[in-house]
Simulated assay, not measured.
Amino acid sequence: MNETCEKGLIIIYAVLKWLLDVVDLGMDWDFYIEVQHTDQESITRAVKLKRAILGFAIIGTLMFTATLLLFCIKICIEKRHGENKSYDDVKKAISVFSFLCTWIEDLPQIILAVIVAVKSTELISDIQLVKAWYALVEASLQATITLIELKLCCVNKPEIWKRVLLILELIGITFIFLLCAFLLIELYQDNFKEIYPLENAAMNFTSNATTWSTPIISTQLTTLDISTKQ
C-alpha cells in the first residue's frame, strides 16, 4: 500500500510539473510574440536580443519534449521490467536534463527578460509580470525539491556526480531567484510610470517650477533692496 501511494504521489507530481512546464513554455512563446510586436524603439532596434529570445524558446521546447519523452520511457520500463540498469540510466538522464534546463534554458531566459525590462521605457505586456512571478514561484519550489533530493543523496550516499549536479543546480536556481526579484522591481517601476504618467509629469513640472522660481524671486528681492537704498 505504501509503495502504491508513493508511486501515485510521484505520478501526480509528474503530471503537475508537466502542466506547469506547458504553461511556462506557452509564456515563453507569448513573451517572444509581445517583444516582436512592440513599438518601443529601444526594443525594435535590438534585433540580436529578439533572435536570442526566439532561440531560447526553441531550446526550451526541445528540452521539454526530451524530458517528457524520458519520463515516459522511465514509466514504461518500470511497468515492464521493474528497476533494472536501463531504468537507472533513464533516471540519471532525467537528473542531467533537469540540471541542463536550469542552466541552459531557465537562467538565460530570465536574463533576457531582465535585459528587455531594462531597455524598455514602459511595460510591454502583462505577460512580463506573470512570467516573472511564475519564475519566482517555480524557482522556490524547485529549490525546495532540490534540497530534499540533496539531503536524500547525503543519507543514501549515491554517486558523487549526482551530489555535485544537485549543488550546481541549486546555485543556478539561486541566481534565477535573485534575478526574478530584480526583474519584478524593474517591471513595477515601469508599470508605475505607465499608469501614472500625469502624476509623474506634474511632479516634474512642480520640481522645475520651484527650481526656476528661486532665482527669479531672489533677483526681485535684490532689485527691491537696491531701489529702497536709493
Rank of each mutant, 00 (worst) to 15 (best):
residue 4 T to N: 05
residue 6 E to P: 00
residue 8 G to M: 12
residue 9 L to C: 05
residue 11 I to Q: 12
residue 13 Y to H: 11
residue 17 K to A: 13
residue 17 K to T: 13
residue 17 K to W: 04
residue 18 W to S: 14
residue 18 W to N: 11
residue 26 G to Q: 04
residue 30 D to G: 13
residue 31 F to W: 05
residue 32 Y to L: 14
residue 37 H to Y: 09
residue 55 G to C: 10
residue 58 I to K: 03
residue 62 L to K: 08
residue 67 T to W: 02
residue 72 C to F: 15
residue 76 C to G: 06
residue 76 C to H: 09
residue 77 I to D: 03
residue 78 E to L: 15
residue 80 R to P: 01
residue 81 H to E: 08
residue 82 G to P: 04
residue 82 G to A: 05
residue 84 N to R: 10
residue 84 N to C: 10
residue 88 D to K: 14
residue 90 V to G: 04
residue 90 V to Y: 02
residue 91 K to A: 05
residue 94 I to H: 03
residue 95 S to T: 01
residue 96 V to W: 09
residue 105 E to C: 07
residue 106 D to K: 03
residue 108 P to H: 08
residue 113 A to M: 14
residue 115 I to M: 11
residue 115 I to H: 06
residue 118 V to M: 06
residue 119 K to A: 13
residue 121 T to H: 07
residue 125 S to I: 00
residue 127 I to N: 10
residue 129 L to Q: 08
residue 140 S to K: 05
residue 142 Q to M: 10
residue 150 L to P: 03
residue 157 K to D: 08
residue 157 K to S: 09
residue 165 L to H: 03
residue 167 I to S: 07
residue 167 I to V: 14
residue 168 L to P: 02
residue 170 L to W: 01
residue 173 I to M: 00
residue 174 T to V: 06
residue 175 F to C: 03
residue 175 F to G: 03
residue 184 L to P: 04
residue 185 I to H: 14
residue 186 E to L: 07
residue 189 Q to M: 09
residue 191 N to A: 11
residue 193 K to F: 07
residue 194 E to G: 02
residue 197 P to W: 02
residue 198 L to C: 07
residue 203 M to V: 13
residue 205 F to E: 15
residue 208 N to R: 14
residue 212 W to S: 14
residue 212 W to G: 01
residue 214 T to D: 08
residue 215 P to S: 04
residue 215 P to D: 01
residue 219 T to R: 05
residue 223 T to A: 11
residue 225 D to I: 12
residue 228 T to I: 14
